[in-house]
């Protein structure tokens, strides 16, 4: 288990954060949580997570904005962003193509599928 890998979970719904947190912790990852995009953005700048798992619709700052704002940071220090959204529209696909290391998962998502992406990216 690699305890050095840090994963940020950004979601305004506590039960979703909790499920992802528990699964990630069981796999030995460090987990940081944020309730909205703004909190998430602050954490990304200070704590440099290896993966960000984020909801799209959130108060304060939504997931799209968070993704766009952190896209620049990825040039210096790449990390994976997993966006979770209620419905993937065709324009979302175009948008995500412009983002670096970003992928979309549709809600209701499968926690196991998220874990697969995490493990794959972190080479676990």
């Amino acid at each position: 288990m690699d305890n050095n890998k840090k994963i940020l979970v950004v979601d305004d719904e506590a039960h979703i954060r909790r499920v992802i947190e528990i699964k990630l912790k069981k796999r030995g990852y460090q987990v940081i949580m944020a309730k909205n995009g703004q909190e998430g953005f602050d954490i990304i700048q200070t704590q440099q997570p290896d993966i960000v798992i984020s909801d799209i619709n959130m108060p304060e700052m939504d997931g799209r904005t968070l993704c766009e704002k952190t896209n620049e940071l990825k040039k210096e220090r790449p990390f994976l962003t997993i966006m979770v959204t209620a419905r993937i529209l065709p324009e979302d696909r175009k948008w995500v193509d412009k983002m670096q290391d970003t992928l979309f998962l549709e809600k209701p998502f499968s926690p196991a599928e998220i874990m697969e992406h995490v493990d794959q990216y972190l080479g676990g």
Partner: peptide, 19 residues
């Protein structure tokens, strides 16, 4: 809490499959 989290996890998987 652990049990609930596991049930929650399971329901997420089921919901995903169902959808």
């Amino acid at each position: 809490i652990e049990e609930m989290a596991q049930e929650l996890d399971q329901s997420f998987e089921e919901l995903n499959l169902y959808a």
